[in-house]
Design a binder for these strands. Structure first.
Length: 912
RNA sequence: GGGCGGUUAGCUCAGCCGGUCAGAGCGCCUCGCUUACACCGAGGAAGUCGGGGGUUCGAGUCCCUCACCGCCCACCA
């Protein structure tokens, strides 16, 4: 490390991120600075640790831009905390993503002519491990490339032994506490994935279907046979479910059907006679006002069936083919069956009508197949009591959600929560640790090898059968904040790093993941798993479209980083980050980041190259000599202090876009555009004592060092690289990554306003020159009248002001009369900026002020008059002066005086 | 059917607690190779802050309402 601390190094002329980003990451790893207790850590061990919880990405392929943006935000927070001297934990991990992974692997297998069935459970899982051994490296590599300062020594996976142990223990306790139960219930079945899915995984999709109206003949009370001339018409979008109908429901107050209630109707094909019942759930206006009830294949009907004690007849199997009906439709896929049933009804004359109908179809989030609700015996987690505790945590302020508006969404969901179906008929995942004995007794065990005997009847384990199902993938994800720290064991990590500080994730998985972590965490550990939930928005493409593989508009972060660098990507995505709001990403954004890095690079190159001869190349950094600072140097320091404060505020408020904006403006528009330009002149001024020039240089070093620290969490690579080339203090650590976060110094309002006025003068003179059509390269003499309060700053900065305004000599007059005499009536450009007036001579040969100059002055006058008028109107309003705060009124008066002065001066200039 | 978010220069967006807040980047126009940077520098044009009400001395900034776009939740078969 000594090479970077004790000597300043030469920087290559061009900023080429690819040349150093990888090497820098290696150096961080080599120095072991990411682990909270790593060899290179400079944290205060007694400080409160800062822990970021990163959603472990799904191990299904590669990371996309959304991952990159979130990782960037997380890394920003953790790097900032690390620099403040807190022990930090940023734990890397991957999620086995059971259903998503199986979906991907199934597709790959299909391409090879294999399938889940052809391989069998064992070989299928072997294939899965092979698959993820490849993808995991890709994904971890992407995180490294992005510069994520993850503690790799703590890498975890939701399918590792630690997670497995936590899953078993968690389920064991939930069951013990009466919060996990097994029952037959109507669940969402995906025929494509051949598994149940949770309510959240069913995506309501608007589609145009058909609404068929079908006649069910009433039974003749006398004969007990269907009456060909009496029927009740029901409307349905799924005629195949007729086979499972067990009732017809009408609204109890519907006069049309009052006489029907209590009678029987004959279901076609299955020739089943079912009751006509009354239930207020029926919408009288919809369809015919009579609803067929299929409790085993429809969520609403299931509830209705339960209310009325109706039988539940399953007529679709796992593949969604007709089963158990004893009809000729047996074995047909439900859609084929639907067609045939409609045709048969039409033939029999019982199809009254059919019309197109817009409806919401539940589709599988993964396979997009139509979800077919069906009865299954599954494990459920009782949600209400868990949700109550989660709500307590957010209401009590122990966990804060950022941005705040999501609290409402959270509350709504938590208060209407339904029990969580955790059984999945998949293979890739944690097997449910429940065993059943031949007598149907249930034994749940947290032991790795299962129970030794049935808990109820004592039968030996050899007679017990383990549940073939696995857990919903979110069950293990829900344990992530503590399962990764050794829970259920009472480990040092768990004590030190739990609960976490900030949990960052996309708002789309607020329910899937955040809610489950809260519920499980509170129940199992008795403490909320994190203090803050920071929700990010989605990354969209430049057109505002959601990025998706099928649309082909996904941006590969690796490719982006290859061309523009990780820093540019990080800057771009952080720049656009507003909590909870989506952002568009396009090439422009990226260029912004890259250009900024380039600017920074060149600024540092300039500073290093401008080192006064009296300072050795390997000089140890010293603070600039305060007695030798000029106005420009004091201005730089004061503006720097302002930027530090702004960045601090942005970080504290999670307004990361504000952080990048403050840095962009501070570094580019203030420090580079004015600070360096002013300093340049002083550094080159041989007439000044060497010590003055050295103080200037040390000021630049101090400023850029501070800016680099502030920017490090956003752009870690380029800042590390550049910082390494700067002279350092003896107490500085070898690398920026563990250097101390800056403390905002004092502001200097007097200097800020004086230099601000002079900067404005330069700006206005430049503008006047350009508008007046003066050749840019031409030096013009100028006269300036500045109030005595600005005299010191003006004189000190005169050489710089001359150079920047390209006016020489620039003569300052202390008296306005003298100024007016000197400016005289010669042809020239006149500017009025605040209390300063300047007149730039156009030189011999000029006939008079060019027409453009007059037009410019007139425009300025008109604008000033307009503003003055507005200010006067405001002050004339008695209500304003009476009710507005004194400071505001005072400010308005000052403004009025200023404007009046400016108007007067401009009029005077125009008269000449 | 509820709920939430967005609507600010041609484009992409900042504008936190109402009082120089009308801004930035890109694009556009005019200039410029001034020894850090053409991934640059200087200057410039450009918006009745979605519409309409209201509160206030004062409103992109608060309230109501409407419109359009987007998202989330929801048991109309």
């Amino acid at each position: 490390m000594t090479d970077t601390t004790e000597t300043t190094r030469q920087l290559p002329k061009a900023y080429r991120p690819a040349d150093f980003e990888g090497a820098i990451y290696e150096r961080w790893i080599g120095a072991d600075v990411f682990a909270p207790d790593g060899a290179g850590s400079t944290a205060d061990p007694s400080a409160e640790p800062f822990v970021i919880i990163q959603p472990p990405p799904n191990i299904t392929g590669s990371l996309h831009l959304g991952h990159a943006q979130r990782t960037a935000v997380e890394d920003l927070m953790i790097r900032h905390a690390r620099m403040t001297g807190r022990p930090t934990l940023f734990l890397p991990g991957l999620d086995h993503a059971s259903i998503a992974a199986q979906y991907v692997l199934d597709k790959i297998l299909a391409g090879e002519g294999e399938s889940r069935a052809s391989l069998g459970r064992e070989r299928y899982l072997e294939r899965m491990w092979q698959f993820i051994n490849v993808t995991r490296e890709v994904m971890l590599g992407q995180q490294r490339r992005l510069g994520a300062s993850l503690d790799w020594s703590r890498l975890r996976f939701t399918m590792d032994a630690g997670s497995a142990m936590a899953v078993r223990e968690a389920f064991y306790r939930l069951h013990r506490d009466g919060l996990a139960y097994r029952t037959e219930a109507l669940i969402n079945w995906c025929p494509g994935c051949r598994t149940s899915v949770s309510d959240l995984e069913v995506i309501p999709t608007p589609e145009t279907g058909t609404l068929w109206t079908v006649r069910y003949h009433l039974l003749d009370d006398a004969t007990g046979r269907p009456d060909p001339d009496a029927w009740i018409a029901v409307a349905t979008t799924r005629p195949e479910t007729i086979l499972g109908d067990v009732a017809v429901a009408v609204h109890p107050d519907d006069p049309r059907y009052a006489a029907f209630v209590g009678r029987q109707a004959r279901i076609p094909f299955v020739e089943r006679d079912v009751p006509i019942i009354a239930d207020p759930i029926v919408e009288r206006e919809f369809g015919t006002g009579a609803v067929k009830i299929t409790p085993a294949h429809d969520h609403d009907d299931y509830e209705t069936g339960r209310r009325h004690g109706l039988p539940m007849l399953t007529v679709l199997d796992d593949a969604a083919a007709v089963v158990g009906t004893g009809t000729r439709f047996e074995g047909l896929d439900r859609l084929d069956a639907r067609r045939e049933i409609v045709a048969a009804l039409e033939a029999s004359g019982d199809l009254e009508s059919s019309r197109p109908h817009e409806l919401l179809i539940g589709r599988c989030e993964r396979s997009r197949d139509v979800i077919e609700p069906r009865l299954k015996t599954q494990w459920f987690v009782r949600a209400a009591p868990l949700a109550a505790r989660a709500l307590e945590a957010t209401r009590g302020g122990r966990t804060t959600i950022v941005p705040e508006r999501f609290v409402k969404v959270w509350e709504h969901w938590m208060t209407n929560i339904r029990d969580w179906n955790v059984s999945r008929q998949l293979w890739w995942g944690h097997r449910i640790p429940a065993w059943y004995c031949p007598d149907g007794h249930i034994t749940v065990s947290a032991e790795e090898h299962g129970p030794t005997a049935c808990e109820v009847c004592g039968r030996p384990s050899s007679e017990l059968q383990q549940d073939p199902d696995i857990f919903d993938t979110w069950f293990s994800s829900g344990l992530w904040p503590f399962s990764t720290l050794g829970w259920p064991d009472d480990t040092p990590d768990l004590r030190r790093y739990y609960p976490g500080s900030v949990m960052e994730t996309g708002h789309e998985i607020l329910f899937f993941w955040v809610a489950r972590m809260m519920m499980l965490g509170l129940h199992l550990t008795d403490v909320e798993p994190f203090h803050t939930v920071y929700l990010s928005g989605l990354i969209r493409d430049a057109e505002g479209q959601k990025m998706s593989k099928t649309k082909g508009n996904v941006v590969d972060p690796l490719a982006v980083m290859e061309t523009s660098g990780a820093d540019a990507l990080r800057f771009a995505v952080i720049h656009g980050a507003t909590p909870g709001l989506d952002q568009r990403f396009g090439p422009q954004r990226l260029e912004l980041g890259r250009n900024f890095a380039n600017k920074l690079w060149n600024a540092v190159r300039f500073i290093l190259g401008a080192r006064p001869e009296g300072i050795a190349t390997d000089a140890v950094r010293i603070a600039p000599d305060a007695d030798r600072l000029g106005p420009a140097e004091r201005w730089i320091r004061s503006r720097l202090a302002a930027t530090v404060a702004e960045v601090d505020r942005g970080v504290a408020d999670y307004q990361f876009g504000e952080v990048t904006r403050a840095l962009y403006d501070g570094i580019w528009s203030e420090f580079c555009d004015w600070g360096l330009e002013l300093a340049k002149v002083r550094l080159a001024d041989e007439s000044l004592p060497a010590a003055d020039r050295e103080a200037t240089w040390w000021t630049l070093v101090e400023a850029i060092d501070t800016y680099l620290r502030l920017l490090h969490p956003v752009m870690p690579f380029v800042t590390e690289e550049l910082w390494g080339a700067l002279p350092h203090r003896p107490e500085d650590p070898p690398m920026l990554v563990v250097a101390r976060w800056p403390v905002a110094g004092p502001r200097d309002p007097v200097t800020e306003s004086a230099v601000g006025a002079l900067v404005e003068l330069v700006r206005v003179v430049r503008s006047a020159r350009a508008e007046g059509g003066v050749e840019p390269g031409r030096w013009l003499p100028g006269e300036v009248f500045a109030p005595t309060s600005l005299a010191g700053a003006f004189d000190a900065l005169r050489p710089a002001l001359e150079r920047l305004s390209r006016c020489r000599p620039l003569v300052r007059h202390a008296q306005r009369d003298a100024f007016l005499t000197a400016a005289g009536s010669r042809p020239g450009l006149s500017v009025v900026v605040g209390e300063i007036e300047a007149d730039v001579a156009l030189g011999e040969g000029a006939e008079g002020p060019p027409a453009a100059e007059l037009a410019r002055l007139e425009k300025e006058l008109a604008e000033a008059e307009r503003l003055l008028e507005a200010a006067r109107t405001r002050l004339a309003n008695a209500a304003f002066t009476a009710k507005a705060p004194a400071s505001v009124v005072e400010g308005a008066r000052g403004r009025e005086a200023e404007l009046a002065d400016q108007v007067a001066r401009l009029r005077e200039r125009l008269r000449r």
